[in-house]
Computed example of a mutant assay.
Amino acid sequence: MQGKPRSMPHDSDTAAARIRIRHFSKSLPMSLLRAREAVMRHFRASLRRFGITEQQWRVLRALTSGDSFEVTELAEATFLLAPSLSRILKDLDERGLILRRTLKSDLRRGLVSISPQGLALIERAGAESEVIYREITGRYGSERLAELQSLLRQLEECLDGPEIVG
C-alpha cells in the first residue's frame, strides 16, 4: 500500500524556514561564488585569446610572485588540488611556460618557476587584464573596491584557524 505523496513546498522561504537555515540566496558561500563569477565573466574572453584557462593563469600569476615554488607550496598558494595542479603543470611545461626541476637534496620534491615565455605571456595578458581592472574599478569605484578587498582579507583572517563547528 502506497502512502499519499508529500507535496513539495513551492515557496523556497517556507522550505528554508522549515529546516531553519537561511535562504539559499543569502548563503555566504553562494554570495562569494556569484561575485567571483561576475568578476571572472569579464576576464574569461581575454584568457581564451591567450589560450590559457583560469587555473593556468592563477598558477602563472602565482609563479611571478617568487623565484620558484615547491609544488605543495604552489598548490596551497593557488587553492588547487594536487591532481589538478599536476595536470596544469604538465600542460604549462609542454608549452614552455614554466620550468621544472627537482631539489638536489630530495629528488621527490619538485620546484617550479616561470619561464621567459611564461613571463612574456603574463606581460601581454596582464596588459589586457589591467584594462579590465580599470573598467571594473570605474564601475564599482576605487574606494569601494579597496574596501571590498580589505573586508575580504579581514574575513579570511578572522576565519583562518580552527573550523567553526555547530
Rank of each mutant, 00 (worst) to 15 (best):
M1H: 10
Q2N: 12
Q2L: 13
G3C: 00
K4P: 02
M8K: 13
M8Y: 14
H10M: 06
S12N: 04
A15P: 01
A15I: 06
A17K: 15
A17C: 01
I19A: 01
R20F: 07
R22P: 00
S27E: 07
P29Y: 06
R34F: 04
V39N: 00
V39A: 09
M40A: 01
M40E: 14
R41I: 01
R41T: 11
H42I: 03
H42S: 13
I52W: 06
T53R: 13
E54K: 07
Q55Y: 05
Q55A: 14
Q56M: 09
Q56F: 01
V59C: 05
R61I: 02
R61E: 14
T64E: 15
T64N: 05
S65H: 11
G66Q: 15
G66N: 10
E70N: 05
V71W: 00
L74N: 10
A77V: 01
A77F: 03
L80A: 04
A82D: 11
A82I: 12
P83G: 10
L85Q: 02
S86G: 09
S86L: 03
S86E: 11
R87Q: 12
R87S: 10
I88E: 12
K90E: 12
L92I: 08
E94A: 15
L97N: 06
L97E: 10
I98D: 06
R101L: 05
T102I: 08
L103G: 00
S105E: 13
S105T: 06
D106E: 12
L107A: 14
R109T: 04
R109L: 10
L111E: 15
L111S: 06
L111D: 06
V112D: 13
S113F: 07
S113P: 02
S113W: 03
I114Y: 03
Q117C: 00
I122D: 02
E123I: 03
A125I: 03
G126Y: 05
A127K: 15
A127M: 09
E130G: 06
V131K: 15
R134Y: 05
R134W: 09
E135I: 00
E135D: 14
I136K: 04
G138V: 03
S142P: 07
S142T: 02
R144N: 07
L145P: 03
A146L: 13
E147S: 09
L148F: 15
Q149G: 01
S150Q: 07
S150K: 11
R153P: 00
Q154F: 06
E157V: 03
D160N: 08
G161M: 04
G161T: 01
P162M: 04
P162Q: 08
I164S: 08
I164V: 12
